Simulated assay, not measured.
Amino acid sequence: MRPLRYSINVTLDGCCHHEAGLPPDEESMQYWAARLAEADALLFGRVTYEMMQSAWRRPSTGAWPHWMNEWQIRFAETIDRAEKYVISRTLTAADWNAELLRGDLERTVTQLKQQPGEGLWVGGVALPLALADLGLIDEYEFLVQPVLAGHGPTLFAGLRERIPLDLVDRRELRSGAVALRYRPTGAMA
């Protein structure tokens, strides 16, 4: 069974709005590009899919925008070419190397996890909350930004039950951000 890893940037006070933390830098973009490249496929809800597509889809010209730094291109190319699954009740179609999935969330994601491979990656806020409630997330990865946002959406607001976690990896970035990886307590490595 391939594991499902949830990854997100978050501020010290738990805000998960994509503009609340530090602006991306070369080291954080390299970190995320490497982590995304380890996944067989990406799993998004509608909101995250549309946000990521608008930011990271290769333009029809084939050339990346002039505003994009060289160090952003590796991340852009990694996410652009990745296989994607989009779980949505409202979308009627998905492109950008994506397949639209509907139906029972638990059954659909369990079937994806049962396929051979290295793992799945999920981002966003609402979909990961539902997956956590179902016990389907095998690893939680947070890039904790040294910022206090003071407002904005927070991770796992409304989670039904506590999920005890074991720290499995920690990495400090030069910016002061800390990458933390956890597995649910008692999960196999």
Score class of each variant (00 low, 15 high):
3 P>C: 03
6 Y>L: 08
7 S>M: 11
7 S>C: 08
12 L>P: 03
14 G>E: 00
16 C>M: 15
16 C>R: 14
20 A>C: 07
23 P>L: 02
25 D>P: 00
25 D>H: 01
26 E>A: 10
26 E>N: 04
27 E>A: 04
31 Y>A: 13
33 A>I: 00
33 A>G: 07
33 A>H: 04
34 A>H: 13
36 L>G: 14
38 E>D: 08
39 A>R: 07
43 L>P: 03
44 F>E: 06
47 V>E: 05
51 M>Y: 09
52 M>K: 09
53 Q>P: 01
55 A>I: 03
57 R>A: 13
58 R>D: 00
64 W>Q: 08
64 W>N: 06
64 W>F: 01
67 W>H: 11
67 W>A: 10
68 M>I: 01
70 E>Q: 14
73 I>V: 15
73 I>Y: 10
74 R>F: 06
75 F>N: 06
79 I>Q: 10
80 D>T: 10
80 D>A: 09
81 R>H: 12
81 R>W: 07
82 A>N: 05
86 V>M: 03
87 I>P: 12
88 S>L: 02
89 R>W: 02
90 T>F: 05
102 R>W: 01
106 E>L: 10
108 T>E: 14
110 T>Q: 14
116 P>D: 11
117 G>T: 05
117 G>M: 13
123 G>I: 05
124 G>Q: 00
124 G>I: 00
129 L>F: 05
131 L>Q: 04
132 A>D: 02
134 L>C: 03
138 D>F: 07
138 D>H: 00
143 L>S: 10
145 Q>G: 00
145 Q>Y: 06
146 P>W: 11
148 L>M: 11
149 A>S: 12
150 G>S: 09
156 F>R: 09
158 G>W: 07
159 L>Y: 06
161 E>N: 11
163 I>M: 07
168 V>E: 14
169 D>P: 08
175 S>C: 04
179 A>W: 13
184 P>E: 04
187 A>K: 10
187 A>Y: 08
